[in-house]
Design a protein around this nucleic acid. Structure first.
Lengths: 213, 213
DNA sequence: CCGCATCCCATGTGATACTG
DNA sequence: CAGTATCACATGGGATGCGG
């Protein structure tokens, strides 16, 4: 039951002992969006074997990173305050990994929780602060997300709804986030398609959400 | 040879495919300090099996994170620009893990590279900017480090030398970095011992190096 | 020596089936 | 729905070998 340790007295080694095992940080990623049930976690991590999910949940719990929160009949898993402090780590990892994403392969899924965190990672609150409040309805793959930016605050929720700008994002969208691809070019190449609202708001979106070095 | 993938089109998943395997980020940590030889890496990671080190080095190379740099007879490994962009990730991990460090166990080693990165992680350049340039000679375990703070710049080098303040740090020192333990209390409890120079500089040190949430 | 490669065994992981 | 049980397999750990 002892985590396999690295034999070093060091913060990074300790962190890797706690959350360095396979799937652990992806579970944390999804829980950063909000409390989740066992089945919801399994659904957001399609390729995780159920025994591994069960094992990780127990380990993370024993380490004080997550906790079981029984809420009237259903069991929710949620991050502890200590676990929530992993947010900068997860965001930094995502910002770095996004640069190496490339094109999506056929079997790869895109989950709402993953996108939510990606947007949180790319969100530039200083930029948003100086812009008027804006809402975006984004369709990505099968799912829809409602993104609300109000001053320095960001809210992302699954589902549809009225918004200042509705658009569909297709593979290659990450190059808009990295600044590699300008919105205009993205529209031209079919990566972005405006469904409703002024096209100019795409620039605001790309300005608000950009991964910076 | 394909990295075991998570089946997700997501930056975090991609990052974990690239550097999520055991030992990978510790290798990156040491290379963040500077180019290192195979043997130096092995020495800084005492418990890594040599075949794993060799395997990781090849994988990281194939992924464009590190590169072999033959320098007149000796082979050095160094980070590529892409690999160097992992610094925020490593620092964030270290800051988080340091809070869960606890007391060092007998078999745990403390390496100069690990301390160097820990100091870099805790360094508050905005605080340092408003303080006079200061040098510290720290003895930790067997090794000695020379820490120079000059405005917003930080330099850490192994070895000894003249400094404004010389001190010895013992187990529990991480609690000074997390702000859990004030320098005065640390001296009282034997965690810190001033060897040479004005004790007051310890406060400056603790002010300059502090992990913040 | 340094920079690995090989071998063997312990452990972790993945797929599937199954149960309260 | 929320896990456990089982088993085949891949990976990691430790010791050792070996060529330049």
């Amino acid at each position: 039951m002892v985590a396999r340790d690295y034999g070093q007295y060091d913060g990074i080694a300790r962190a890797l002992e706690l959350v360095g095992e396979r799937w652990a940080l992806l579970i944390v990623r999804d829980l950063l969006v909000g409390p989740r049930r066992y089945g919801e976690l399994a659904a957001g991590l399609p390729r995780i074997p159920t025994n591994i999910l069960a094992t990780r949940l127990k380990e993370l719990q024993a380490e004080g990173i997550i906790r079981r929160a029984p809420r009237s009949r259903v069991i929710l898993y949620e991050l502890t305050p200590f676990g929530r402090e992993l947010e900068p780590v997860v965001l930094a990892l995502g910002a770095w990994g996004t640069k190496a994403l490339g094109e999506p392969r056929e079997e790869q899924v895109i989950t709402p929780d993953a996108i939510t965190i990606a947007l949180r990672s790319a969100f530039r609150s200083e930029v948003a602060s100086s812009l008027p409040a804006t809402s975006y309805a984004a369709r990505i793959g099968a799912g829809g997300l409602l993104v609300r930016v109000d001053g320095p605050a960001l809210t992302v929720s699954p589902g549809a709804g009225p918004a200042d700008l509705a658009f569909e994002a297709r593979p290659g969208i990450q190059r808009v986030l990295t600044g590699e691809l300008a919105p205009a070019s993205a529209v031209e190449s079919g990566v972005l398609e405006v469904l409703d609202g002024p096209v100019a708001l795409l620039d605001r979106f790309a300005d608000t959400f950009r991964l910076v070095a």
